[in-house]
Nucleic acid binder design. Sequence first.
DNA 1: AGGATCCTGTACTGACTGGTACAGAGAGGC
DNA 2: GCCTCTCTGTACCAGTCAGTACAGGATCCT
Lengths: 190, 190
Amino acid sequence: MRAPGERGEIIPKLGEVFREHGFEGASLARITEATGLGKGSLYHFFPGGKDEMASAVLDEISHWFAEKVFHPLRSEADPASAVAGMFAAVETYFRSGDRVCLVGAFALNDVRDRFAGPISRYFKEWREALAAALRRGGRSDDEAAALAEEAIAAIQGALVTARAMNDPALFVRILRRSEQRLGLAPGENG
Amino acid sequence: MRAPGERGEIIPKLGEVFREHGFEGASLARITEATGLGKGSLYHFFPGGKDEMASAVLDEISHWFAEKVFHPLRSEADPASAVAGMFAAVETYFRSGDRVCLVGAFALNDVRDRFAGPISRYFKEWREALAAALRRGGRSDDEAAALAEEAIAAIQGALVTARAMNDPALFVRILRRSEQRLGLAPGENG
DNA sequence: AGGATCCTGTACTGACTGGTACAGAGAGGC
DNA sequence: GCCTCTCTGTACCAGTCAGTACAGGATCCT
């Protein structure tokens, strides 16, 4: 037996294929090429085929965000630095606008229905976690909820428009302004 | 010869197929079904195949927005009502969050490269037109540019997240708040 | 060394892909 | 009536699709 991480190691590669070509455009030919694995291995690790591969990718994304973003938002002592941490993590994760949000991309056509659960859970958890941090930062329930969903939409929209106009810097600009608007400066300098 | 609008009449149907299934997922089988036209007719009207069909759809979208959104933004006497008109048009066009932005959806994977020109032009024109209205409304150049790109990203992000969470009302909420933030109330009541 | 288990390459399937070719239906002009 | 031009259904093509079957290689345990 190889290292148990064998399967786990190819999931990021699968993610990149789905990101680049979408679910329908991610053919097994492209997947075998990108992962270096033949069909045999692929169907050994993912007996459910493309659906299971995409599910695994969504799972991995979920876990990453849960650990690096949602959990800190919910439980970090200083809500301001938790929010700052979220924006920093997001900027890194999306490679300053060069990378696309697979969950958002899946949401835009009929593949959403196949993965409706994970997709909606991802955004709902994010919204709830960010709202919680904003409440701890002194916002009312309504304000926190509104600002949270606005910030998340801003991030998604920034990814779409930055890619559409081929201008990754736009993503970063919108991130900055969105962060400012949440208005939770932790200290005076820094 | 039939009415010269024959070809034009099927373009909206093509648009819906691309919206629902994406470019790759929009197979000729689905297209013939949705349009009621056989391959013969389809390739008669669009000799270039799927690429030409998608181009025609993007063109039609461009023209619609140019006429109903961009032009009023640039030239309507009262910039406040021009902006209000934009939000109203957008809310109607996207069916209060039930419909997806095809241009944004195309931007998210590798089909963007096939239609890079029309896609980036659509967003750039929108941004420029909205910024022009904001400038006429009293904003500085920098403010206008920043607010414009933020508002457009908000709309796109609202479409993504509303559909992801299966909550069209979210789209309308974000539209309202985005409009408020532009802060160009035309009158006291209305 | 033997044996069990995990992994992988290859060959194959039937369905579907986008696209082409073309005969002929249909309608309008004269 | 006839001719022309636009349109359309059908048959067909080679290529690709996701998925299956399976033999055998690799690896580990004992």
